[in-house]
């Protein structure tokens, strides 16, 4: 007669059902792996995420304006590899799961970012406005030095780091 007590409990307690979709959804777990968010300002431009992405959802493209980042959610498997390996955590998985969309919106389901071009402060050459890779530089660079380093093209960045007496 176990089921009778179960019935009584269910009738007394009321339904366990979440109000969604008629009401707000219940709180989402913080670490849920959902929609990808990309922050172009902190990207190093190492392209590690593009190489590692198992489903090929991430694509970097060179354009006249700089380098674009695109993550197409309809093929992303939300594995989190990109976030795990990203050296500066420029790529980040939010816990947003509202991804269902109409077929007409299928190719608009992208996370887009642009890393702009820059003109080198030293030589006037072209470069990308990426975060410099300074993880292995000893002694560590100060904040001002990082800003100076960022304003240079890759060749001038190498020169700058050599002038610090360390290979990058």
């Amino acid at each position: 007669m176990n089921f009778l007590s179960l019935f009584a409990r269910n009738l007394r307690r009321g339904p366990y059902t979440e109000p969604f979709p008629f009401g707000p959804p219940s709180p989402t777990p913080k670490r849920l792996r959902g929609r990808i968010a990309f922050d172009a300002a902190t990207c190093e431009g190492c392209l590690l995420c593009e190489k590692l992405c198992p489903s090929g959802a991430i694509k970097f493209t060179r354009t006249p304006e700089g380098m674009t980042f695109d993550c197409w959610h309809p093929t992303c498997v939300f594995c989190g590899t990109c976030e795990f390996y990203c050296p500066t955590k420029a790529i980040h998985q939010t816990n947003d799961w509202h991804l269902a969309h109409f077929q007409s919106e299928k190719f608009g389901m992208t996370e887009h970012g642009l890393i702009p071009n820059l003109v080198c402060a030293d030589c006037g050459g072209k470069g990308l406005n990426t975060v410099p890779n300074t993880a292995k530089v000893r002694p560590p660079l100060s904040a001002e030095e990082v800003v100076q380093l960022r304003a240079r093209c890759p060749k001038c960045r190498n020169k700058f780091l050599k002038s610090r007496g360390k290979k990058p």
Binding site: F7, N10, L11, R13, P15, Y16, T17
Partner: peptide
């Protein structure tokens, strides 16, 4: 039946 199973129905 839904109520007995703890659903709205």
């Amino acid at each position: 039946a839904a109520r007995l199973q703890g659903r709205v129905g």
